[in-house]
Computed example of a mutant assay.
Amino acid sequence: MSLRLTLIAHAASTATRQASFPLDEGLEPQGWQKAQALAGSLGRVDGAWTAPSLRTRQTAQVLGLVAQMEPALADIDLGAWAGRALAEVAAAEPEGLARWTADPAAAPHSGESVLDLLARVASWLAGLQGQDGRFVAITHAAVIRAVLISVLEADPKSFWRIDVEPLCFARLQAHAGRWTLRSLGWNAGEAA
């Protein structure tokens, strides 16, 4: 039995391009076009999941995936910072932003800490063990970072050192109760 999982970061949204903490906006036109260029190139997919957000559901739709919504794949809860520009938060709350990016247990925005996100994602990954086939999950950069930290058993402080761009992918394999990172890249069409 073998489980292959490809995680794909959603295509670019307005918040992505404006360096803002997102709300539930959809894809920007350029992001939509880049996702369309990958449509139909994922190969065999036995099942797919998407985070609840509009931008992940739209990415799955453009890629031609019929995906189940999975709450565990939701973006990190940004609390009071949601919808605000990064520069605005940095100017108004420099200590809070610095604490959040330095301390994985911190959540100065009254949202979710990185440690909370890591626990949520690790629980979801554990629940997938024992399945067989090729699966795709359309999610957020933060979730992909959390998956990588979990699979590699890396220090949670490494979370912010992983750059995940729109349509970036991570390919994983689970076998005998253990996850392995197979590849990380920017051409999701070669991901499945």
Rank of each mutant, 00 (worst) to 15 (best):
A12D: 04
A82K: 01
L184T: 10
F135K: 11
M69E: 12
I76L: 09
A191I: 02
V66T: 01
P108E: 09
A37F: 06
Q68V: 01
G185Q: 11
G40A: 03
E165W: 04
K34R: 13
Q131R: 15
T101I: 08
R171D: 03
S150F: 06
V151G: 05
L23A: 08
A39Q: 12
I138M: 00
V143R: 07
L54T: 14
F159W: 07
R44Y: 13
T6L: 05
M1V: 13
A19G: 11
A122H: 04
G64I: 07
W186S: 12
R145E: 06
D116K: 03
A15L: 09
A35D: 04
G40S: 05
L78Q: 15
P156G: 01
T6F: 04
A87Y: 08
I76E: 03
R55L: 09
D132L: 14
E112M: 02
V136C: 08
W124A: 07
F169K: 06
G127H: 06
A126V: 00
W49V: 14
S123V: 02
D24C: 05
D155T: 05
G185D: 05
S158F: 08
L86A: 09
F21Q: 01
R57Q: 15
S20F: 07
A67V: 06
G79T: 14
L167W: 03
P108V: 03
A141G: 13
L86K: 10
G40K: 06
V147S: 03
G47C: 14
Q131G: 13
F135E: 07
L86P: 05
A119W: 00
R161M: 03
Q131E: 11
A142F: 13
E93A: 01
A9N: 11
D46W: 15
R120K: 05
L63D: 00
V151N: 03
V45W: 07
R99G: 03
D103E: 12
T6W: 00
E25Q: 09
W49Y: 12
A98I: 00
T16N: 13
W100T: 00
T16D: 14
T50Q: 14
W81M: 12
Q61E: 08
D155G: 01
Q30L: 15
L7Q: 08
D163L: 08
L118A: 01
A137V: 11
G47L: 14
H175A: 12
D77S: 13
G40N: 09
T101P: 06
L97G: 07
I76N: 00
S41Q: 15
R44L: 15
M69T: 06
D163S: 09
P108I: 00
W186K: 10
R17S: 08
D46N: 13
R57T: 10
H140F: 10
S150Y: 04
H140G: 04
Q129V: 11
W160V: 02
E190Q: 07
Q131I: 14
A122W: 05
